[in-house]
Amino acid sequence: MIKVLVVDDSALMRRRIADILTGAGFTVVTAVNGADALERLGAERPDVVTLDITMPGMDGLACLDRIMVERPTPVVMVSALTAEGADVTLEALRLGAVEAVQKPTTGGPGAIADELVETVRAAAAARLRRTRNLSQRLRHVRSRIVGTDFLAEPAGTSAAAKADGPPGLVLVGVSTGGPGTLEELLAGLPADFPWPVVVAQHMPATFTGSLARRLDSIAPLTVVEALHPAQLQPGTVHIARGGADVEIVRRGGRVVVTPVPARAEGTWHPNVDRLVDSALRALPAARLVGVLLTGMGDDGARAMADLKQAGGRTIAESEDSAVVFGMPRALIERQGASAVLPADRIAARLADWADVDPGTRRVTRRRD
């Protein structure tokens, strides 16, 4: 039976979360703050920790950092998921939290409670990423760019973005455990990577703007949130807006990425299957590469298997690096993966497929 340590300074919220998880068959113990949580962590040895972000004394981020150092355990951040708290919650995901979910309401069972239960169950089976505290992360990023060129790439539209569309397009689908994996993938792409990238990360709308800004600050490429229709350009990464979907379409002879309302029948949004299906309608399969990363469920597996069958190429993240192996496993089981790779090798494979000369590859940092 899965044991969960629920950490929240609100007695009402502790009781609410405990009731939901107990009703789902979990064993639940509670802690009233970060210091209490660290004491109970060793004594109770929980399979999963749910952790509030805003607490007096030791806040959720400080507690999470200690957990990852002292006794690494899958952590689910329980947050109000407001725009104001998005940066803090994303920092928690970068520090090693498996996922963030919305705080349950005081009403009866509903979609929020169901999501909490499903996320905790997935977290119990999750593979923890190798995590680093903030100072270690900064050293890691700096170590990758020592001796490289820090000059900005010149702006402008290249011939690759002419009316018949880009020569290549990378479509990335990712869910639980995604922010850290995306950071590793995008930071590893060379500054002269010639293809656009479109990312569908399952995430609420309040988070994707912050995610795009954070990734833009560490990646050699330009990273933007897909808020409006935009022509696909080399070296630009478009992060689909959370809570909606995104499609690749042709408009006036140009190939455009555009946000679209989420379909009611879809379980996860931004929906990966819908993104890949639309790309197959807009461009030849041979120009497309699908990358399916960590996440619960099977979103993207069917469409990426279709992509491979039609002559495109696909990559599934391997089990040894995936936080949750559900989505990539589903692609592999459909025999839809051209390659199965750990997260830290995917960028190099994409650069090879895009014919980036290994002798000229550079990881650069833009000057703002």
Score class of each variant (00 low, 15 high):
K3N: 11
L5Q: 06
D9P: 14
M13F: 09
D19P: 00
D19N: 12
I20P: 03
L21I: 04
G23N: 03
F26W: 08
T27Q: 10
T27G: 09
T27R: 09
V29P: 00
T30F: 08
T30E: 10
E39Y: 12
E39A: 14
A43H: 04
A43F: 09
D47S: 11
L51W: 12
T54H: 14
M55A: 08
P56Q: 07
G57M: 09
A62I: 06
I67G: 10
M68Y: 06
V69H: 14
E70Q: 15
T82K: 13
T82Y: 12
T82L: 06
A83G: 00
A83H: 05
A86W: 12
A86Y: 11
D87Q: 10
V88M: 15
V88R: 02
E91I: 01
E91P: 08
V98W: 01
K103F: 01
P104F: 04
P109C: 07
A111I: 14
E115P: 05
L116W: 01
T119E: 10
V120C: 09
R121A: 15
A123K: 07
A124N: 01
A125H: 01
A125T: 03
R127W: 08
R127S: 04
L134S: 11
S143K: 13
R144D: 02
R144Y: 07
I145W: 09
V146E: 11
T148E: 08
D149E: 13
L151D: 15
L151N: 15
A155S: 11
A159C: 05
K162H: 12
A163P: 08
A163L: 14
G168N: 00
G173M: 09
G177Q: 03
G178F: 04
G180F: 03
L182R: 01
L186Y: 01
A187E: 14
L189A: 05
P190I: 04
A191V: 08
F193R: 04
P194R: 02
V197K: 01
R213A: 15
E225G: 05
P234S: 14
G235C: 05
G235E: 01
H238N: 09
A240I: 08
A240W: 03
R241K: 13
R241P: 05
G242F: 11
V246Q: 05
E247D: 13
E247H: 15
E247A: 14
I248D: 01
I248T: 02
V249D: 06
V249A: 10
V256T: 02
T258I: 09
R263D: 15
A264V: 06
G266F: 06
H269A: 13
D277G: 07
D277N: 13
A279E: 00
L283K: 00
A286I: 10
L293K: 02
D298G: 06
G300T: 09
G300I: 08
M304C: 08
L307A: 08
A310C: 07
T314Y: 02
A316D: 07
E317S: 07
S318P: 13
E319K: 09
S321I: 03
V324D: 08
G326R: 03
P328N: 13
P328R: 00
A330N: 01
I332V: 15
E333R: 07
R334P: 13
A337N: 06
P342H: 11
A343P: 03
D344L: 12
L350N: 02
A351N: 03
D352Q: 14
W353Y: 13
W353A: 04
D357V: 06
P358M: 13
P358C: 13
V363R: 14
T364D: 12
R365M: 14
